[in-house]
Amino acid sequence: MRPFVYERPTSVSAAIAIASRPDTVHVPSTGAGTQFIAGGTNLADYMKLGVARPERLLDLNTLAEPALRQIRIDNDKIRFGALVRMGEAADNNDVRRRCPVLADSLKFAASGQLRNMASLGGNVLQRTRCEYFREISWPCNKREPGSGCAAMEGSNRQHAVLGTSDACIATYHGDFAQALVALDATVDVEGSRGRRTLTFSKLHRRPGETPDIETDLAADELITAIEVPLAQWSSRSRYLKIRDRESYAFALASAAVALDMDGETVRSARIALGGLATVPWRAREAEDTLQGKVLDEATAQEAAEAAFADARPREHNAFKIPLGKRTLVRALLETRDMKG
């Protein structure tokens, strides 16, 4: 690990002021010379591996604003401060009761130890675990733009089948983000140019020709809160995660599903897919096929076909397409059978 400057700002505005100083190097996205750190479960790892090499770390754990650490639940929304730990949100009974998909997407992620450290704001910004990205001797367009993609023709069982480009097939591995993108969550962001609210689906960028640019955030922008609207579908929601082992593994395929039902008929469905795509993945085509239909094996299967119509497999990950479809079918049927 190379030496870096470590600072502990005590307010959001102070953190942003440091991050936007002209002396800091503004490499796009997470290659920035100044990095915010909260739980450090992803960044510290990548610093040790030489993948992230920040000049300056701004520790957010000393920020004084109480709202950053609060979960606020109203009738029509849940608001998570960005420094709330994954474990705290996962174990919150009201979150679980009002919106099970949020609690499960958190609970099935990482391990108890990691969930106790990782912040929600950091969690949604976690970087890919692509093995070729993690190890600096491989070429990687995300780590070193223009160097090539070693995964494309390499060992790519873990890689994405949705939202890929010719430059990058790295999977977005997060779970919580799938629930957020399905539920039309928003994120509050603060930076040197002021505050703004982004819909969650606009936060991450597909790799396209610039896989190094992963989010819509400027280098000095900080997520301060995540807000999830509550509605008819929130309590009938579920996160199904399929993985190689029972715990402490990334999803091979996952589905976040929330259903608004009129008896056996779907009024509206919200669906996101994890472990399969380069970014948190809203499956709107699948949602559309279900609207106004009775939800059964056949219509669930139709939705699954629609979700994967554009999937592009590589040598080792073709199984993710049938697996992704079955995961979605199972998640839809299990969500249907929940009490609304």
């Binding site: 675990r129 093995e131 070729y132 993690r134 190890e135 070693a150 023709e153 390499g154 060992s155 873990q158 190689d244 082992r245 029972e246 715990s247 402490y248 593994a249 990334f250």
Partner: peptide, 21 residues
């Protein structure tokens, strides 16, 4: 990686062993 004769999943994140669960 068959092209380069290199080990790819060189950590406990991707080299899976059973966990308690």
């Amino acid at each position: 990686d068959q092209r380069h004769a290199r080990y790819v999943n060189r950590d406990l994140q991707d080299y899976l062993v059973p966990v308690n669960a």
